[in-house]
Amino acid sequence: MAGVKATRRGRRPTGGGVQLTFEVIAEDLRERIRSGGLRPGDALPTQAVLMREFGASSLTVQKAMALLKQEGWAVSRPGKGAFVAHHDSADDLGGPEVTAAAVGTAARVETLERALADAVEQLADLRARVQALEAGGGEPGR
């Protein structure tokens, strides 16, 4: 499957049966993981390698990696790169696909919780500003 390119520069054909390039890259890497060519903890190919291999742009490769991370197939280690995620409980849950979905969901929940905490903090700051303005004292700290 390596080296397969999607058509029409990333737009989904009207027939709907052809994968976009980032989907092709993600599926190829999933297959390498399933087949044992890439094992948990192994480094995934670099962005430059995948760009050459698939004739893809950096953005396309980044979308493929983001998809794999979202699904739980890959993890990032800052300053080190992307690695195959560990699927220790895959046998208990019915295989890597189920584990990947669970890990991906947990990561999404964590991201949403952080975003919610940031939003609550921003609301509290705005509320304090409004109260200061209503009290006629101007904005706090200014």
Results as ranks from 00 to 15, higher is better:
residue 124 A to W: 06
residue 111 T to N: 08
residue 142 R to G: 10
residue 129 R to H: 03
residue 3 G to I: 07
residue 51 M to A: 12
residue 105 T to D: 13
residue 2 A to H: 01
residue 113 E to F: 08
residue 46 T to C: 01
residue 139 E to C: 08
residue 85 A to T: 04
residue 43 A to G: 13
residue 95 G to D: 06
residue 94 G to C: 03
residue 30 R to A: 02
residue 119 A to T: 10
residue 42 D to G: 08
residue 114 R to Y: 06
residue 26 A to C: 02
residue 22 F to Q: 06
residue 129 R to E: 13
residue 122 Q to E: 13
residue 76 S to N: 06
residue 139 E to I: 13
residue 105 T to E: 13
residue 111 T to H: 09
residue 98 V to S: 07
residue 139 E to P: 04
residue 67 L to G: 05
residue 133 L to T: 07
residue 4 V to N: 09
residue 33 I to G: 01
residue 83 F to L: 10
residue 95 G to R: 14
residue 21 T to L: 05
residue 131 Q to H: 09
residue 17 G to Y: 13
residue 99 T to H: 06
residue 117 A to Y: 03
residue 13 P to Y: 02
residue 142 R to P: 03
residue 127 R to N: 11
residue 66 A to N: 15
residue 31 E to M: 12
residue 23 E to F: 14
residue 30 R to G: 01
residue 67 L to Q: 14
residue 48 A to V: 01
residue 11 R to M: 00
residue 37 G to V: 07
residue 51 M to L: 02
residue 23 E to G: 09
residue 55 G to P: 01
residue 51 M to D: 11
residue 35 S to H: 07
residue 110 E to W: 04
residue 135 A to C: 02
residue 29 L to W: 05
residue 126 L to E: 08
residue 24 V to K: 15
residue 23 E to H: 13
residue 134 E to R: 15
residue 102 A to G: 00
residue 121 E to A: 15
residue 44 L to Q: 01
residue 34 R to G: 00
residue 57 S to Y: 09
residue 39 R to P: 09
residue 138 G to Q: 10
residue 120 V to F: 10
residue 130 V to P: 00
residue 37 G to L: 12
residue 134 E to V: 05
residue 100 A to K: 03
residue 86 H to Q: 11
residue 53 E to A: 13
residue 104 G to C: 01
residue 125 D to M: 02
residue 9 R to F: 03
residue 40 P to E: 04
residue 70 Q to Y: 08
residue 15 G to Y: 07
residue 122 Q to A: 14
residue 54 F to N: 07
residue 106 A to F: 01
residue 28 D to T: 15
residue 4 V to I: 11
residue 130 V to Y: 02
residue 83 F to N: 12
residue 66 A to T: 12
residue 62 Q to E: 00
residue 59 L to I: 15
residue 127 R to M: 09
residue 40 P to W: 03
residue 118 D to Q: 05
residue 64 A to E: 06
residue 31 E to T: 12
residue 134 E to Q: 14
residue 67 L to K: 15
residue 27 E to L: 03
residue 135 A to W: 02
residue 28 D to K: 04
residue 1 M to A: 12
residue 88 D to Q: 12
residue 12 R to Q: 15
residue 15 G to W: 06
residue 10 G to E: 01
residue 16 G to N: 12
residue 97 E to D: 15
residue 46 T to R: 11
residue 118 D to T: 02
residue 1 M to S: 08
residue 103 V to I: 06
residue 26 A to H: 03
residue 72 G to Q: 11
residue 10 G to I: 07
residue 133 L to H: 09
residue 134 E to I: 08
residue 11 R to H: 09
residue 49 V to K: 13
residue 84 V to N: 02
residue 67 L to I: 03
residue 135 A to I: 05
residue 111 T to C: 06
residue 41 G to F: 01
residue 69 K to V: 15
residue 119 A to V: 07
residue 24 V to P: 07
residue 136 G to M: 05
residue 128 A to E: 11
residue 13 P to L: 00
residue 23 E to Q: 15
residue 34 R to H: 13
residue 106 A to S: 12
residue 136 G to H: 02
residue 84 V to I: 02
residue 31 E to F: 06
residue 87 H to I: 02
residue 30 R to W: 14
residue 18 V to R: 13
residue 124 A to Q: 12
residue 110 E to Y: 08
residue 23 E to D: 06
residue 16 G to D: 10
residue 119 A to R: 13
residue 98 V to R: 07
residue 102 A to W: 00
residue 124 A to C: 00
residue 137 G to K: 13
residue 130 V to T: 10
residue 128 A to R: 14
